[in-house]
């Protein structure tokens, strides 16, 4: 798979929107910022489709890889956006790095560990910010921001958040 992958996923209360530019993206940041909730939404949609009430829009299939049977699961994933939540020990393994080299998927990995076996870019490490009011009628918009990529090394300027788009309805 080449190029960018755009994802928009929305439930009654939450909305995420992000474009992934490279084959490996790392998602990290504070606890309770919504990382696992995003992976849960993807997994629920994968298992139960539109019965979930989740609206998912992406230019490729979205899958979740987890647990000790990851290698078997991976064999059935092609040209997909694959999410891996934290707590999956295999994500840091040499074996995983070796296996994904032979695939054409994009991977979004939730972890705070440095994955020394994987060739990912420092500019593709993201955190999540939320905008909007909880318990309102509008879903809360979750926006990913580059943790390091927007840092201006020459001028020492702090990273700037991209503008937050309005919620879709």
């Amino acid at each position: 798979m080449r190029g960018s992958v755009s994802l928009r996923v929305r439930s009654a209360h939450l909305q995420y929107e992000q474009t992934f530019h490279r084959n490996i993206t790392i998602l990290k940041g504070d606890s309770a910022s919504g990382k696992t909730t995003l992976v849960d939404m993807i997994q629920e949609y994968e298992l139960n489709g539109s019965d979930t009430g989740i609206i998912l829009s992406c230019n490729c299939p979205c899958r979740v890889l987890s647990g000790n049977t990851w290698k078997e699961q991976l064999k059935g994933m092609h040209g997909s956006l694959v999410f891996i939540d934290e707590g999956n020990r295999f994500a840091a393994s040499e074996e995983f790095a070796h296996e994904i080299r032979r695939t054409d998927n994009y991977y979004v990995i939730v972890t705070r560990e440095s994955l020394s076996n994987l060739p990912y870019s420092v500019t593709e490490i993201y955190g999540i910010h939320s905008a909007g009011k909880y318990a309102s009628q509008e879903p809360v918009y979750h926006h990913m921001y580059r943790i390091y990529g927007d840092y201006d090394l020459q001028n020492g300027r702090e990273p700037q958040l991209s503008s937050i788009k309005p919620s879709i309805r």
């Binding site: 309770a32 705070r112 560990e113």
Partner: peptide
Amino acid sequence: ASNCGDNC
């Protein structure tokens, strides 16, 4: 504890 963010 790497499942905890800095806010923990």
